[in-house]
Design a protein around this nucleic acid. Structure first.
Lengths: 346, 346
DNA sequence: TTGTACGCGTTATCAC
DNA sequence: GTGATAACGCGTACAA
């Protein structure tokens, strides 16, 4: 069922069929109708692969996601959803490449095989092989996240450093003196995961500026780890009165640990984070958080990528968002933790 | 940077380069090394599009997902993750098609344009245009879910009818007499969404078998709707003592509504569901549920699809899973609901 | 090992 | 203005 078959049955040449379909050359009403009738009858659709080969455009975007084995966070899912959505609106398809490791086969197929017109990269590290690979391949790409050399690529990112600092200041304004940062997993931070490092930097800076006492902890990206992480924090630092976090997945567990320790939020303990907007809203209780507009970021990344594909020579663009903190009632004035056996803790 | 360029620089013909790479014909050690040196130097990788055109195989699977706009449930995400994962293990890429409506452009591009070797379809309705379209296209496909004419396609599915019946029997065994089914959204059920209808059927049947009093409710797929749905159920049926549900997304809200009504689970009220295994485990409290092995189903679907691609003539296969109910403590003996103002409710 | 036809749609070029 | 011919994109595989 190819264009030659349509041409034969309509009694015209292949090029005439092509012109009739694309409209790039006028074709007489009569011929056009005859061709269309055959097409409708046989249900012919041009072969997208042949078209892609000829035009050198696949009309497909590659989306590199973390390996499916480890669960994606809600924010990551928000990115994926918005990228897929924005691409569909531009009549582009999305090819998924689940690749975390260094020399991933899926990544190599998509990038090396020129299966896509451009790539969107997630979960970028400060030093990232995939970025290097993409840069030398010349394939247009946009990061959701950035490396330690952010000038050399196009990206959209969340300003974790500023946002965590903002969280710390908010807590300090409420009178908290001893606070903790619950970061992403130790492996991720050790691997040079940007947000983890930038959150640390922002925390350290803000804590110093306000003369607070700050503790930092890594925590695996899942609820149970959130439980044990907070349990240990409470044990080790009886005078802790608040936590800031960028670890969405651990949040439900952190709530649970506080409840089990008999601490009411926000009366006895405050908690604040950086999280996807709708996720923070739907948490129970809704979390006071810097609301990351995941859907907007994915759409911006797609838009930037489409521009780079159209003209790879344009200068790199950088979008750094620092959304305001939405107060939803999980932070309050620092009190004294009603800790049994340590009534005078400060 | 194509195969001709490599051939020129190595001083051999294009076909020799091709054979050196594929190994389908012997090539002398010397020539092979010379070719490999050029390839390494230039970083040549065969163009996947040209290869796909020549071979008539894209080495890509299409995955049709619900439109990204409405959030995917945890079970759907589990399907996507396991499909992507299983495909990657077989060195296949996955092309996403977010399409819910009838004549979706993305779906038409993927199916009509022969961009993929096969398709996995999710969220199938009893009457589903996309299934019809795929059947007449001749493109191999496998459903995660099935239509009302299940013989005419290959699928893996969850036996919601049996599972909900099993839930009802479990509740009946515990002495519950008045129970409710919380279904998926009214629109989905009205549109002929299979699981919704089959759950209804199983519920109706089991309730009749045990002589119980059953109520059915549709509920939008999100937490807030779960709250109002349960609130209304409790209002309308003061003697209700248990709920069974297939609506994951509404569950957190249902828990909340029970807590706010002062009902302790499972002392005052029992709740049971059909849900993805790890999701049910991580809920708080962990939900007594028929544990759907989402990862296994996705992998099975991919495996079946790969077989159908290899030989489209093999008979259709059907995998219907009915996992056992895992008791996690959200069901207990029917008591009397400690309802203020209605102490004698039965 | 090499030459070459092929898969399929697009488009420049030529002819009427 | 319309229609047809042929080359092209790139890798594969048969015939020589």
């Amino acid at each position: 069922m190819n264009i030659g078959e349509i041409a034969r049955r309509s009694g015209v040449s292949r090029s005439t069929v092509s012109y009739a379909l694309s409209g790039k050359r006028p074709v007489s009403q009569d011929t056009r109708r005859r061709i269309q009738a055959v097409i409708d009858e046989l249900g012919y659709r041009p072969n997208a692969v042949a078209k892609a080969l000829k035009e050198g455009k696949t009309r497909t975007l590659g989306l590199v996601i973390p390996p499916a084995s480890r669960r994606l966070t809600d924010m990551q899912l928000g990115f994926v959803a918005s990228v897929v959505d924005a691409a569909a609106r531009a009549d582009l398809d999305v090819l998924l490449s689940p690749s975390g490791g260094e020399h991933d086969r899926s990544f190599e197929r998509v990038v090396g095989g020129r299966r896509v017109d451009g790539v969107i990269l997630m979960e970028i590290r400060l030093e990232d092989d995939r970025v290097t690979r993409l840069q030398q391949s010349g394939l247009p790409f946009v990061g959701i996240g950035r490396t330690g050399h952010p000038e050399e690529m196009s990206w959209v990112d969340i300003d974790y450093e500023t946002l965590i600092a903002r969280c710390v200041h908010h807590l300090a304004d409420l009178g908290h003196r001893r606070i903790a940062l619950v970061n992403r997993s130790a492996e991720l931070v050790a691997a040079g995961y940007g947000p983890g490092h930038r959150a640390q930097a922002g925390f350290t800076r803000a804590v110093a500026e306000r003369g607070l006492h700050g503790v930092q902890r890594c925590c695996a990206d899942e609820a149970q780890s959130g439980v044990t992480c907070v349990e240990r924090l409470l044990d080790d630092h009886p005078d802790l009165t608040a936590v800031a976090t960028i670890n969405e997945a651990a949040m439900p567990g952190m709530y649970r640990a506080l409840a089990q320790a008999g601490l009411a939020v926000p009366r006895d303990f405050s908690i604040i984070g950086v999280a996807a907007r709708d996720w923070a809203e739907n948490l129970h209780p809704p979390l006071t958080a810097a609301d990351v507009p995941a859907d907007e970021l994915g759409a911006r990344a797609v838009e930037m990528l489409i521009q780079r594909i159209a003209d790879p020579a344009i200068p790199h663009r950088h979008v750094l968002v620092a959304p305001p903190v939405s107060l939803r009632g999980t932070t309050g004035p620092a009190g004294r933790r009603p800790e049994a056996g340590d009534p005078g803790a400060r």
